[in-house]
Write a protein that binds this DNA or RNA. Structure first.
Length: 976
RNA sequence: GCCCCCGUAGCCCAACCGGCAGAGGCAGGCCCCUUAAAAGGGUCCGAGUGUGGGUUCGAACCCCACCGGGGGCACCA
């Protein structure tokens, strides 16, 4: 992230204190710096924030906290990229820090760790730009951000810190890969199982290879060893697959679907992306689609993130329907093939008038006819002499078409006819079969039945190609034309056997599906938009795969005892990149050039043999998929995670609970990728018995963004926001008027504000209080530098309540507080607790401000504040502004840190009033206030209200139809 | 086009389960302190909840429609 973790600039502010006008012991920025640095040293020296595990090497001191509830809170760890940290970044870190400190004081055993996500493209690109090894730059960036976090005063247990690039960490990333590689998804059991169990069942004859996994078509007992390995490999959760991938020549690597923007460019770097077939590692996340979807309901996450994951998984139900091809007597070579289509609208089957295959559909070649029949519609041929030429030309054109064209909204539908027809199973109608790129390879079966009457895309295609339309849903009388996708009774849908006519959609779907099943022509099915996860990258800066290839070019797992497979040091770590638009180029991973590494002699049980290493590396997401588990003990070199410690920190709290991290805070931008991948890995680890929790993150909170004003001059260029002056509501830069805009903080808008500047000017505590006071954690908010002074003033007042500004000594008195003060104190405690518990730190700050203001006016300079009020005030400030709180606590005579001191508890006695004011409404309008005993019942309330003369005036001469009296709240007279 | 979230004072934000719209901060006014300014302290000032309907004794809160802002998905059959 940033390299600007400067020591605070004490000089800048120290000058003012020499001026005599300021009392010598005022809480100035200079004093804040001193206090903060001193306490940060002491926390580190004393290991104040060390959290014990139940067992293992980090278990020292666990006995003292064994009876506490556990609380695991963490942030999405930073990616230290070297491009500067701004005030938006710490928002979440401070939220978890305040929560962590509060929960610790309130009696929890709190785990609050931090680590660094450091493999991946940005670090590599930064290194290439600066001509340094990625490890050098990455480690420098980590050191910088580590210093910055320390300067903010966060309470991470630094013994649990690690980076994903540490060999001691990625060893276990590779280990998890081996576990995934070493398992398969048993669809009947709905979970992953070790691959050895599959082999055992195949050998025993109790299981057949899954459909599509046995290319030979021969039974398992007849296969030789290599053929058997191919069958087994095709079952694995991590598998090699040749498929069209997103090849990005500009980056020299392939990208996952998730890393490609909707306009067909790379999310990183904005280079064009092309589809081309390559053999790559895939992760079978689709096997978990149903569980990933269903378990969302068991998570305490925001609706929007859940919704985004639901959309991404994209479950839809419908039917698979077989259309047979190769009608007798037709001059084509497509004998006895069946096209499987997927549809969510089997109720419209009678309206299908043609069939479409995706250009990459495997049946296209086999189905293409030798010649056009006479009289073929010229629109159907693509201008070619034969179907084969037309199809080949179309496929080439489609593969070249960048995704940029594809997303063009109103692009005309294109396609060509294969020269064959397929038979609609429900009415025997012969439908022409087209290939067209509006049908996607990866979704459903890659083939559709086209129903132009009820689908706008099919309608558009039918219009362009002159295809017929059969309506099967009755549109409303005033319908203008085109495809009708709304509801309506079914029409034109009957054969000798069934009729759907008059049925509603749901009934029609059930009826026709049942008919299809009975006739062996289809079945009800569910599909997902989610695709398997492309897991290979042709980059240097990533985890090497723990995989080698043997003489059959089949993958072999590197034994666990040989982990980690270290990333070799190389001179040239940049990938071979190509011209942005060179779609024909092929990936060339940097590791493939390290020839003394790529070839290796190993004894994997068959004696020493030469093997070829996998030269791809894992994607950036791998390291962040499981880092929360490693915080439990990053130095455990025997296990990924100790099961007892995992059960303690992450296990289910009660039967049926998903378990996981108790509070996970991070940006909305990871709503799909990181969170979905991590959930997937966690579920695999759960299935294999390595973790006791079903989900990684029980509760997720997305912190808001911080935006700031930006300013443009008359040419539209951004000017430095910090130098813009406001006069009479208008804005000027160097005397010239500028326009005010609003946007995310950053370099490009020239509106960057760094925490270092703020800490330099006010100290970390002021910065912390400011960020926490601007709203609930989830709320996005504007940054306003000039408002920071308000938080500074609050801390100064708190300081003055406790410390004499001229002598620097605590001025708390051992006297009894008055009742007003006690009420104020306990109301504050209740409010602060509420704010802390609900991550509405602004509420906590507001309550503390009220109490401080009360104390300031109730106890002047000559009347010290009672100790029994000053101390709880200091304790309540501690989670938000820990340094000043520690300092005040210490000046109040305590030698130990307050970090483990119990948080104040409100006394109910001072929360309830003897009497309460309730509003009296007449027809819902507030007309008077009456004071009644706090426990007055409805009748007493009504009596008191009627006795009020203003109320009597409103009621005089009118009929009271009804009286609503809510004890403690109000009385409402409903009059006629 | 579809889906999700959000509209309260000049600005940022509160308001428990539907029960008196205001806690806090910024900005602004006035006063004190000061030779003056800054810093500091004190005090004052504020809207009726985007719009229109509905439910209710009672709506910022629940329902419907619309407007505005933010985000996601998008030829997904």
């Amino acid at each position: 992230m940033s390299q600007t973790a400067d020591r605070p600039d004490v000089e800048q502010t120290a000058g003012g204190a020499a001026d005599g006008a300021v009392p010598p012991h005022r809480y100035t920025p200079a004093l804040a710096q001193q206090i903060e640095l001193a306490w940060q040293d002491r926390w580190e020296r004393e290991g104040t924030f060390h959290t014990p595990n139940p067992t293992g090497r980090l278990s020292e001191g666990f006995d003292e906290v064994a009876d506490r509830p556990k609380f695991f809170v963490m942030d999405m760890f930073p990616y230290p990229s070297g491009t500067g940290l701004h005030v938006g970044h710490p928002l979440g870190y401070l939220g978890t820090d305040a929560t962590s400190r509060f929960r610790r004081m309130d009696g929890d055993n709190v785990l609050h760790p931090m680590g660094y996500d450091a493999f991946g493209l940005p670090a590599e690109q930064y290194a290439v730009q600066t001509g340094q090894h990625p490890r050098t730059t990455t480690e420098a960036n980590i050191a910088a951000i580590r210093g910055q976090l320390r300067r903010l005063g966060v309470d991470h247990d630094e013994r649990r810190t690690f980076a994903t690039i540490d060999p001691g960490y990625y060893r276990w990333t590779q280990w998890i890969f081996l576990k995934i590689f070493g398992s398969w998804f048993d669809a009947d059991a709905g979970r992953a199982r070790p691959i050895a169990e599959l082999v055992a069942e195949l050998d025993a004859g109790t299981r057949e290879p899954a459909p599509g996994t046995n290319e030979t078509g021969r039974p398992w007992p007849e296969l030789d060893d290599v053929e058997r390995r191919r069958v087994v490999d095709a079952h694995r959760l991590a598998y090699l697959h040749q498929a069209p991938v997103n090849w990005c020549p500009g980056l020299g690597t392939v990208l996952s679907n998730e890393e490609v923007t909707p306009d067909g460019r790379s999310e990183r770097g904005n280079f064009p992306v092309f589809r081309r077939p390559l053999t790559q590692w895939m992760m079978r996340i689709t096997a978990y689609a149903e569980r990933l979807l269903a378990d969302l309901d068991r998570l305490d996450w925001s609706d929007s993130v859940k919704q985004m994951q639901r959309n991404w998984i994209g479950r839809s139900t419908g039917a698979r329907i077989g259309f047979s091809v190769g009608v007798a007597g037709r001059a084509d070579d497509a004998a006895d093939q069946t096209i499987e289509v997927f549809t969510t609208r089997p109720d419209t089957l009678f309206g299908a008038t043609y069939v479409v295959l995706a250009p990459e559909h495997p049946l296209v070649d086999a189905l293409t006819a030798g010649s056009w029949p006479s009289g073929v519609d010229p629109r159907w041929t693509g201008g070619e002499a034969t179907p084969r030429e037309a199809v080949t030309a179309y496929q080439r054109q489609a593969s070249r078409r960048s995704e940029l064209d594809r997303q063009n909204e109103n692009r005309e539908k294109t396609g060509v006819w294969l020269g064959v027809t397929a038979v609609n199973p429900v009415n025997g109608r012969e439908l022409p079969v087209f290939v067209a790129d509006y049908v996607l390879t990866g979704y459903g079966t890659g083939a559709i039945m086209a129903v132009p009457g009820e689908d706008t895309r099919d309608w558009d295609f039918a219009e362009a190609f002159g295809l017929p339309v059969v309506r099967t849903v009755q549109p409303p009388a005033d319908f203008a034309g085109g495809a009708w996708t709304g509801a309506g009774p079914v029409i034109n849908s009957a054969n000798d056997d069934i009729s759907l006519n008059g049925l509603d959609r749901a009934t029609a779907i059930a009826t026709v599906t049942e008919w299809l099943v009975r006739h062996g022509s289809g079945e009800a099915t569910t599909t997902y938009k989610l695709r398997d996860w492309l897991f290979s990258r042709q980059r240097y800066w990533g985890e090497p795969f723990p995989v080698v290839y043997d003489e059959h070019d089949l993958p072999v797992a590197v034994p666990e005892s040989m982990l980690p497979v270290l990333l070799p040091d190389v001179d040239d770590y940049s990938p071979k990149t190509f011209a942005d638009d060179d779609a024909e180029s092929a990936p060339e991973p940097p590791l493939s050039r390290v020839t003394d590494w790529t070839t290796v002699e190993l004894d994997l049980g068959e004696g020493p043999k030469k093997y070829r290493r996998e030269t791809n590396t894992m994607p950036n997401w791998a390291g962040s998929c499981w880092y929360y588990l490693r915080y439990i003990d990053p130095d455990d070199d025997r296990r990924m995670v100790d099961p007892d410690n995992e059960r303690y920190w992450l296990g289910p709290r009660e039967p049926g609970d998903v378990g996981g991290v108790d509070l996970y805070v991070g940006g909305m931008e990871h709503a799909v990728l990181h969170l979905l991948y991590a959930r997937f890995w966690h579920k695999v680890l759960f299935d294999l018995g390595y973790v006791s929790s079903e989900e990684p993150f029980r509760r997720l909170v997305n912190q808001g963004y911080i935006s700031a004003y930006a300013y443009t001059d008359e040419r539209g260029f951004y000017v430095p926001a910090a130098e813009v002056e406001e006069r009479d509501g208008r804005f000027f830069f160097q005397g010239r008027p500028v326009n005010r805009e609003y946007g995310k903080i950053g370099k490009s808008l020239k509106n960057m504000v760094t925490p270092d500047e703020m800490i330099g000017a006010y100290g970390a505590d002021t910065f912390r209080v400011y960020e926490m006071s601007t709203g609930p954690l989830e709320q996005s908010r504007p940054w306003e530098t000039k408002a920071v002074v308000g938080s500074q003033r609050l801390l100064q007042r708190i300081w003055r309540v406790v410390v004499d500004e001229s002598s620097g000594v605590a001025r708390a008195a051992d006297v009894e507080p008055d009742e007003d003060t006690l009420r104020a104190l306990h109301r504050t405690i209740a409010g602060v607790r509420d704010g802390m518990a609900t991550l509405r730190f602004n509420i906590a700050v507001a309550r503390i401000t009220e109490l401080t203001n009360h104390l300031t006016s109730a106890y002047g300079a000559d009347r010290p504040v009672p100790r029994s009020v000053a101390e709880p005030l200091v304790l309540m400030v501690a989670p938000l502004a820990p340094h000043i709180a520690e300092e005040l606590w210490s000046r109040l005579g305590h030698s130990r840190s307050l970090a483990w001191h119990p948080f104040p508890v409100a006394d109910e006695r001072w929360l309830v009033e003897d009497t309460v004011q309730v509003a009296v409404q007449v027809n819902g309008k507030v007309r008077a206030q009456v004071t009644v005993p706090a426990d007055a019942d409805a009748a007493a309330l009504e009596a008191a209200a009627r006795a009020d003369e203003k109320v009597a005036g409103h009621l005089a001469g009118r009929t009271v139809r009804r009286v609503v009296a809510v004890p403690g709240r109000l009385v409402n007279f409903v009059v006629g």
